[in-house]
Design a protein around this nucleic acid. Structure first.
Lengths: 202, 202, 202, 202
DNA sequence: AATGAATGAGAGTTCATTCAT
DNA sequence: TATGAATGAACTCTCATTCAT
């Protein structure tokens, strides 16, 4: 057992996670068989158990993988020195772009996590809500700096942003030709200004 | 025996649909067994097939049930004589309230419809996209009356509203004590005015 | 309960046997459901049990029905006053013609009797071998009258006749346009004279 | 491990075919369960699917196995240099002997092949009718050489021979002590000379 | 005489999992 | 490190059968 983190075993395990992500994304957790996963990886069904204790562990790893840098990137955005508007744009861009980049693992996380047992799901949920909390923090900061109205409920705001992004995420995954940047602009616009014609209202 | 349309068979079939909705919502389509459904209904597994030709037909019926008046109510909102703001509020209220009323079937519709075969899925999708189109129409009208800014992309707007509602829907289903009306207010506020402090921006 | 043997019950029971024969002939015993039979008869599945104790009893009755006059007719041929050749022709004609007339019940008897339990099968087998014994008797008589060679094994001969007829029976059922009378002529010819050119042989 | 074509898998698959033949012969295709087959083979039900894709594939393999050298042997008889009488005797011997050797698979082929799907049945039927055609060819040759009468319908003759053999085949399978060679003699005698006393007739 | 509703046993099939090699 | 063979539990679905009405 060499100390190098890229021993053959580690490499193969990673390949297994990617194979599982790919198959789960395509057929869903219950629609995929361990044989499918092994085949995509180029090994035999039984050999898969060298890398996963169970099919559920495979799902768990995929979800973790899908969630990880999704959450990680949020941390660096929140920590950066930028005005509110820039952080918001960065967040939305990061979130929506993800559906193109590593959509498989992420898609699996979104669609199949309910098949994990309580404890694993909770662990992932914490990572995910860490994500939301970071976003909420950005709104709070925005209020302090005066960029966000004082009466805004920041928790609500963070949920809303995520909801909008996810809703479009589904469309994006379905249609690979969709113009992502237009969606991002529109989303930022909505969050900042809503749709109402204030001149009219006033 | 009156000619009433609720013979025993109809009644039981309805009970079967409700049982299926409840089980699917909890465990997902593939995670649920026909035995689970039958048990929740209080009959034996084999008897379920007196009411459904297959497990998939059960899913189909649940989805239809979940979608039906959800779509229908939208039509009457769109057709009514009210200003934009009132229609928007009515829509969001209707959408979010649904997660309390008939949440199971609706949740199933949202999460599991992709397991239906093409033709059934298409039929439901038409109902569903009719819903979104009605909503888009409300925004278009709002533009004409000057209540909505002319630069707003109405298709985007309709998707955004749905995304926000669904995002909160999940929370609402999870936590039965959540204050729905606050969420509705916040959502309407976001859609109308965004979160930015316009005095600051200007 | 009137003494008349054509009470409604008897009539209906007969209809049930005919329906069963028709369905079994088409789909085989295991391929047919009691629902199929009931439907062909125009009643509901449960009602069938008013006429049959079980599906197997239905098969049993069909087989009996198929076998009965098949065997009965043989008796009258054997008892008649005709030379050997005429009796042989009558037997073959009767046997082969049957595949056109009442082929359903007979076909069922031939193909599905093995699904009956021992005792019923034995009972039918006796009827059937009675048939063969009658035929053997015809050959014995033929020997006595000098029409059949003394060295012929009459038991073998009876089996051979039945084998030839059954073999063609299958073809006849399959192809409704086949010329039955040519087959009968050929069969009689074979049984009497074989195929060898005796002038050559001598 | 030599490159011998009898790896463990092949061996076991063969055992599975034999087990299936045995069970099907006894209870018929629909009367047999996959559990029956597995048990006769000494493995568990699920394991059977390691060797067969489906129950129907098992039937298909059994039929093929039953039919194969049955048809093959006929070819070499037809091609050999022998007088008609010798070829006829060889054919009948081959056909009847088979019921002792590999009787189960053959019985299954005769009785259950109709449960195969069109394409597989056609493929087997071609093998089978090749058999009959070879036999017909033997009769045609016999006519040319003068050993068979010119007025004999050779197609009829071939069917008749097969019918006689199959009819006795059933008896032979049922009673293991039966004297096969007497039956063969009798059959050849019938085919050549019929049963009639020509001296009397003339 | 007939039916609607329900049942329960069993069918074929799939598949995650194990383990000796 | 990987595999072939086997397992057993679960699955969906079918159907002969029963019985109150």
């Amino acid at each position: 057992m060499p100390a190098g983190e890229t021993g053959k075993y580690e490499q193969q395990r990673h390949a297994a996670i990617r194979a599982a992500a790919s198959v789960f994304a395509e057929k869903g957790f219950h629609g995929s068989s361990t044989r499918d996963i092994a085949e995509r990886m180029g090994i035999k069904q039984g050999s898969l158990y060298y890398y996963f204790k169970s099919k559920e562990e495979a799902l768990s790893e995929v979800c973790l993988y899908g969630m990880q840098d999704y959450a990680g990137r949020m941390v660096s955005i929140a920590a950066s020195e930028q005005p509110f508007r820039a952080k918001l744009t960065a967040t939305i861009t990061s979130h929506i772009t993800k559906y193109r980049e590593k959509n498989e693992a992420l898609k699996v996380y979104n669609a199949e996590r309910l098949y994990l047992d309580e404890s694993k799901r909770t662990r992932l949920h914490e990572l995910g809500s860490g994500y939301r909390q970071q976003l909420e923090g950005i709104f709070v900061e925005g209020q302090k700096s005066g960029e966000v109205r004082a009466d805004v409920d920041c928790r609500f705001a963070s949920h809303a942003v995520i909801g909008i992004c996810n809703s479009w995420g589904e469309q994006i995954v379905r249609d690979p030709d969709m113009d992502i940047y237009e969606i991002i602009d529109n989303s930022v616009g909505l969050i900042l200004n809503g749709f109402s014609n204030n001149k009219h209202t006033n």
